[in-house]
Amino acid sequence: MKRKKHTSGDDDAQIDMTPMLDIVFIMLIFFIVTTTFSNEKGLAANRPPPDQQPTNQPSKALSIRIDATGQIQMGGRVVDIRRVVANTQTYLAENNTDTAAIQADEDTEHGIVVDVMDQVKQAGIVNVSVLVKK
């Protein structure tokens, strides 16, 4: 009768890594395929190019001020938000410009500022900038 020699188990024991790598690659492909990319909506900021020199010519931009309580001033007089389009069109009839500057107080509600921006764009002004007053 022949006896077996006791050998160490380290010589023959190996773990097959192929199934684990297959699962990892399948999970990677699954997550890449199911990921959705969304474009965030927001206001576009048009900044002047850095090499553009400021001009010393006076600007004829429409100036609109909004205080902390939401009161709108155009040309030094208080205007209701429903009359911003009409006042802007009157200003455009008298002045040839395509820019408006909205100066809002830091505590002004954002919705009012956006409403004024929409009204000004409806009146025909293309470039609208927003300034925050502290």
Rank of each mutant, 00 (worst) to 15 (best):
I26Y: 03
T18D: 10
V84C: 03
D67H: 05
S59W: 13
F37N: 07
K121C: 10
P49V: 03
G75Y: 05
L131I: 10
D80H: 15
M27S: 11
Q73N: 11
L92N: 02
D105S: 08
T34W: 10
V114P: 09
N87H: 08
T7Y: 10
L131P: 04
T18I: 07
T7Q: 07
E94D: 14
Q122K: 13
A61K: 02
G42N: 02
P58H: 12
E40G: 07
T18R: 11
N39I: 13
K121E: 08
V24C: 09
L43S: 09
E40M: 08
D115K: 08
P49T: 05
P49S: 09
N56P: 06
Q52F: 09
D51S: 15
F37I: 15
Q89L: 04
A123S: 04
D118N: 07
K60Y: 13
G42H: 05
I15C: 06
D80E: 08
R65C: 08
D16A: 11
L28C: 01
D16W: 08
L21R: 06
I64H: 00
V33I: 06
F31A: 01
Q14L: 08
R83I: 05
A101N: 08
M20C: 10
I81R: 00
T18H: 11
V132D: 04
K60M: 12
D98C: 05
H6W: 14
F37D: 02
I81G: 01
M20Y: 11
P19S: 12
M20F: 14
T88I: 02
D80V: 03
V113P: 00
G76M: 05
Y91K: 02
Q57F: 10
T34F: 14
F31L: 03
D11Y: 15
D16I: 06
G76P: 03
V126N: 13
L92Q: 01
A61P: 01
I26R: 00
L62N: 00
T108I: 06
